[in-house]
Design a protein around this nucleic acid. Structure first.
Lengths: 222, 222
DNA sequence: CCAAGTACCTACTGGCGAGTAAGACTACTG
DNA sequence: CAGTAGTCTTACTCGCCAGTAGGTACTTGG
């Protein structure tokens, strides 16, 4: 006879420290939220995927809302760090910064599809207090891009044409990236770099120039 | 004594033909879905907003899923027609076609905010059979844009630079529009035309050119 | 070896919401 | 006026799911 708590299937690993369980739970939650959406995801399924019982989920991460917010926070932080690292690797040239940022973003999406889905598709659809959580992160992303664009404009000593529009342009750029990332999920035959390059071309050169055969080329070091 | 079915509050209008009721129900559904999201929206609330009892909703529009799909279909059709009309008003010049299409799109979003929300935020988040319904419409939009871009490319006799990328570029462009539309909902001080012009500039000229002060100008007739 | 704390469980409750049963009212048609 | 077709209602059922009560095992420090 086996111990009371073991199940018919695989043996549940036992007595792990809180820290580890919390990570497991968050991983499971990201996976389930990303596949089902917030409302359709059930705490029962999350606990099952996390290979732990439901009360533990509540004990460690709190209510369903709390759990979702925690997912958003963790994944969004990961994403923002990836992008910031990418930009930091670039020199001062604005187009290279933009390029590295885009590459980092698409790299992240390719590597952590669930993270991306939960961030983009799920969070924005909910009206609750996470929309706020996620909205904040999104605003930080837009601000980062806006700052980058403003930098560019000042570097080149530009005037009225671009400044004052940067927020809107940053929003458009972020949206284009998001949308292209979704498109990419359905067309995985391309590499992250190739997708990033397409967007870079569109955004930097403009469609009018692309049509004339003038394209943007990445600098030597990647 | 009043008739059995009247309520304490305002008198419920009575015995309207099916056609009218269906429109009321769809209107209510779009409103509620747009505010709450698919799962959080309840059929009870929808029937209440539509000022009719729940079984009528089921009798006329079927299940919750059916109802949602019907909303998507109706609103998406409205949107696609608006854009197609806009493009059709333009001449043969590709930039003007793009410009008119963008203007029509942002005009629609400004006029029918709920429609836009239900289309963009809600539908894409659900994994059900509506994602399909909506996905189809979105694909049609992307195809329309892609066709327009291909036209442009051929008009100008271009080769490898742009063709073969058109699908991805169209996806990016559609995404940029969507995202900018969301941004606009939070910055309503701008006119639809101004927002459309910003995006047109970014997409047509490219950020590199904007920075140098080279902007795109709308043709005389709007 | 005992106590105390922490990890962990099974088994429930309570409410909400999709969908329906069963019929009542109204209007038209002959 | 009788019959029929279409509109419309109240008042349920029933399943699902967030959240909890109340306890069991392991483990660590004395």
């Amino acid at each position: 006879m086996r111990s009371t708590h073991e199940r018919a299937g695989r043996v549940r690993s036992k007595r792990l420290p809180r820290e580890v369980r919390e990570r497991q739970i968050l991983d499971a939650a990201v996976e389930v939220f990303s596949q089902r959406g917030y409302h359709a995801a059930s705490m029962d399924e999350i606990s099952e995927v996390a290979d732990i019982s439901k009360p533990m989920v509540y004990a460690y991460l709190g209510s369903k809302e709390d759990l979702f917010a925690a997912c958003i926070r963790r994944e969004a932080t990961k994403l923002m760090e990836a992008i910031a690292d990418g930009v930091a690797e670039a020199g001062n040239s604005p187009d290279e910064q933009l390029w590295r940022g885009l590459r980092a973003f698409f790299g992240f999406v390719g590597e952590f599809r669930d993270s991306w889905r939960v961030l983009h598709r799920q969070a924005s659809a909910q009206g609750g207090p996470f929309a706020q959580e996620l909205g904040d992160m999104r605003k930080r992303a837009i601000s980062l891009v806006a700052a980058l664009l403003i930098n560019t404009a000042q570097d080149e000593g530009v005037g009225a044409a671009a400044t004052g529009q940067t927020d809107a342009l940053a929003a458009a750029l972020v949206g284009a990236s998001e949308s292209l990332a979704d498109w990419w999920l359905d067309h995985p035959e391309e590499s992250a770099g190739a997708v990033a390059a397409r967007l870079m071309n569109l955004v930097w050169m403009g469609f009018g120039n692309l049509v004339d055969g003038h394209t943007w080329q990445p600098p030597k070091g990647s």
